[in-house]
Design a protein around this nucleic acid. Structure first.
Lengths: 338, 338
DNA sequence: TTGTAAGCGTTATCAA
DNA sequence: TTGATAACGCTTACAA
């Protein structure tokens, strides 16, 4: 039932080495022989075993992609970008969801090591180094996305969160807002911290005093945005604008504002971050800071391939994308009251 | 650098067979020896090669998941369900996006065969049988989701589209609507056809004459929904409600209606299908027919595992879920005009 | 140019 | 209970 290289060899009347040569384009093979082998392989419907190939010491042709949750709208685009580049290179990708649970992450990484993946891309997951170190010790290259892991040996792909946050807040300030709150992401993430920092810098350069009460930490979810916005709206004086740590938070914040009887953008302007698909589809459209997610995923896979192929050596490289402010309907000029 | 079973054997002062036995829990091993082996493996940081294991004739511990596009909000949930069940069983999943392109699908399936996956799940992709037949010929079990492939040997997991569509339309009819249009999905898909059929049945049982002009085919995208709705709204008399082939179509239709100056649900009621995450987040909330996507993904993987383990033989089984109508804000009672 | 044979890391058979 | 050893399917010297 399973046809092996031996069957093809027999059928073509040659040795297995010759079959291997024509299939891999390695070594010299007479044109005629090549034809014969190809024909035999086709007739038999031969499919070489990557397991065997990988075992010989070559590559497995697979990579692992470790993310928190594919259900979070931020990850599908990145995943697609990774997959695009992988597929083009003849690679196949293992998808792993960790839910940001260290235990699950360890389990996934263990499986990936058993599968002898040629490389791994971590996105938006843990800042812990264990998993990465283990992989590196195995000689498996790693690329990290949407997280900063100051590790000497890993390549990093990310967006300039500081600049993005600044752009978002400057936009708000330019619209006349002075009382701007920040519905922040998760306090322990570098991403959350950077966006908060950008927010503070924008306020500072505009000469607006920073009010600690105006930043509320939570996590990067819709629910968190809803919750956190409720407290922010209870401030006195009430903020006229909110810069959210990401789009999900922004969406939750908008809902909270509406439930509190406030209109967006009339009573409250809101800016998000990421530009997930939903941002363009909700009404009013969400003003946000776009990350070129698919492109970033593709870049991560490209960098990983370079490491795998030994085309890139040395210390970890870092590719930083400049985000772009997308102005839609959730922000508007603040009407100076009386 | 790579530690093999031989290294562990040497370190523990036993033969490789013994190491294999303790690691797989097969055969008899003296408790003391077992300890020694386990210790050696741990000290060396030994990670067994699944490539080698698979080669011996066992399983590779991997499955393929073939979908059109992870970027389409309908697929992440299913993917997650598959991944959940796979991970629990020690399996790892290869994710493949085909964009519904037969060429890409063939390429992906070829790679999956080379990787010697133990099984494959196709969701929402092609009704062509080639890929499936090839896999089956290899002895690789297949489960199909969200598509009907009347193939004797594959298990199928799907939702009762007919019932779902009927429920959606009955809801509309119960609200007093008589002029109901259908923004259909792709004409060549069974899913699209079934939902259209359910729509017709509901009209019929209510004694409403079917008007061919009221069903407009397109595909399952937001853009298609927008486009198709524009022509539907040009009908005379104008429909007071639209049943969309899925949520993306519904969202596009709503946007088209609003752009045409119509209010949803005041001037037009809209019902979708799927209940993607976005449906609950948009304003007004989208009334739709929910598919238990994550649960369905989990079921598909479970059925696949049974086939892989030989716990299920015989003809293809079929698991049909009953969808649930979720009433939110895009539907409302039709005000009888004068 | 092409074939033989030695691995690659595991599991499984068979003696011991 | 345990240890050789023969596969598993393929690549790659090494000969021919």
């Amino acid at each position: 039932m399973k046809v092996t290289i031996r069957d093809v060899a027999r059928r073509a009347g040659v040795g297995v080495a010759t079959v291997s040569r024509v299939l891999n384009g390695s070594g010299y093979v007479k044109a005629e022989t090549r034809e014969r082998v190809l024909a035999a392989a086709a007739e038999l419907g031969y499919v070489p075993s990557q397991l065997a190939r990988g075992l010989v010491g070559g590559l497995s042709g697979t990579v692992g992609l470790v993310i928190p949750d594919i259900t979070n709208p931020f990850f599908p685009l990145i995943t697609r970008g990774v997959e695009d580049a992988a597929s083009e290179a003849g690679y196949t990708v293992f998808l792993c969801n960790t839910d940001n649970d260290p235990g699950l992450e360890a389990h996934d990484v263990q499986k990936l090591r058993e599968r002898r993946v040629d490389g791994v891309i971590f996105v938006g997951t843990t800042e812990r180094r264990e998993s990465v170190d283990r992989l590196l010790a195995d000689g498996i290259p790693v690329v990290v996305m949407d997280r900063q892991l100051n590790h000497a040996d890993v390549d990093t792909v990310l967006v300039d969160n500081l600049a993005g946050a600044r752009a978002a807040c400057r936009h708000l300030i330019g619209l006349g807002h002075r009382r701007i709150a920040h519905a922040a992401g998760h306090r322990s993430t570098r991403t959350g911290q950077d966006r908060c920092q950008g927010y503070r810098e924008a306020l500072e350069e505009a000469g607006i005093a920073f009010d600690p009460a105006c930043v509320a930490w939570g996590d990067f979810t819709y629910e968190s945005g809803y919750r956190v916005c409720q407290v922010l709206l209870g401030l006195t004086p009430r903020p006229t604008a909110i810069f959210a740590g990401n789009d999900l938070i922004a969406l939750g914040a908008i809902r909270a504002a509406e439930d509190a009887g406030l209109a967006v953008p009339d009573d409250l302007s809101v800016v998000g971050f990421d530009d997930i698909q939903m941002a363009a589809l909700v009404r009013p459209g969400l003003t946000t800071v776009r990350q070129p997610a698919r492109e970033m995923g593709r870049m991560a896979m490209t960098m990983l391939l370079q490491r795998i192929r030994g085309e890139a050596a040395g210390p970890g490289r870092r590719h930083v994308y400049q985000p772009e402010l997308i102005v839609r309907g959730t922000t508007r000029r603040r009407e100076p009251h009386a």
